[in-house]
Deep mutational scan, measured.
Amino acid sequence: DDWEIHFNNITIRLHGVSEEQIEELKELIKNGAHEEELRKWAEEVNR
Rank of each mutant, 00 (worst) to 15 (best):
D1V: 15
R47K: 15
K40M: 04
E37T: 08
I12K: 06
V17Q: 02
N9Q: 07
S18P: 05
I29W: 03
E20M: 09
I29A: 02
N8V: 08
D2Q: 11
G32S: 03
I12P: 03
W3Y: 13
D2M: 15
I12T: 04
L25G: 01
E20V: 11
H34T: 15
W41T: 04
F7G: 01
E24F: 10
Q21R: 11
E35F: 09
A42F: 13
A42L: 15
E19N: 10
T11F: 10
I29Q: 01
K26C: 13
H6P: 03
I29Y: 03
N8K: 13
W3M: 09
H6S: 09
I22R: 06
N8C: 12
K30G: 04
T11G: 05
E37I: 09
N9L: 06
F7T: 03
S18L: 06
W3R: 04
V17H: 03
K40Y: 05
I29P: 00
I10E: 08
W41S: 03
V45K: 07
E19D: 12
H15P: 06
H34V: 11
N8M: 12
G32M: 05
L14E: 01
D1H: 14
E24W: 06
I10S: 06
R47G: 15
H34L: 15
R47T: 14
L28V: 02
E19K: 13
I5E: 04
N9W: 07
Q21N: 06
I22D: 00
L25N: 00
N46D: 07
K26N: 08
E19V: 13
H6T: 12
K40A: 11
T11L: 13
H34E: 13
N31C: 09
I5Q: 04
R47E: 15
E24D: 06
E20F: 08
E4H: 15
E4G: 02
D2E: 15
V45L: 11
L28H: 01
E19T: 11
A33V: 12
F7N: 01
W41V: 08
V45F: 10
E36Q: 07
D2H: 15
R47S: 15
T11K: 09
E36P: 03
S18D: 05
A33F: 05
E23N: 14
V45I: 12
E20Y: 07
L25D: 00
D1S: 14
E23C: 10
E37Q: 11
N46L: 14
E35T: 06
H15C: 10
I10W: 00
I10V: 10
W3S: 03
E20S: 14
F7C: 09
L28D: 00
G16D: 11
H6A: 07
I29H: 02
N8R: 09
R13V: 06
A42R: 02
R13K: 10
V17C: 06
K26G: 05
E24T: 08
N8T: 05
W3C: 11
I22G: 03
R39H: 14
A42M: 12
R39V: 14
F7M: 06
A33G: 04
L38M: 03
R47I: 15
E19Q: 14
E4Y: 09
I5K: 03
E19Y: 12
E20I: 10
H15T: 13
V45H: 13
I12R: 05
W3E: 02
V45W: 13
H15W: 06
E20K: 12
L38A: 00
E4M: 09
N8I: 07
S18Y: 06
L28K: 06
L38V: 07
H15M: 06
E44K: 11
E23A: 12
E36D: 15
R13E: 06
F7W: 09
K26F: 15
E37M: 09
E23I: 11
E44M: 08
N31M: 10
E27Y: 05
N8Y: 01
E23K: 10
R13L: 05
A33R: 02
E36M: 05
E44V: 06
A33T: 06
H34D: 14
F7S: 02
N8A: 11
K40S: 08
K26E: 07
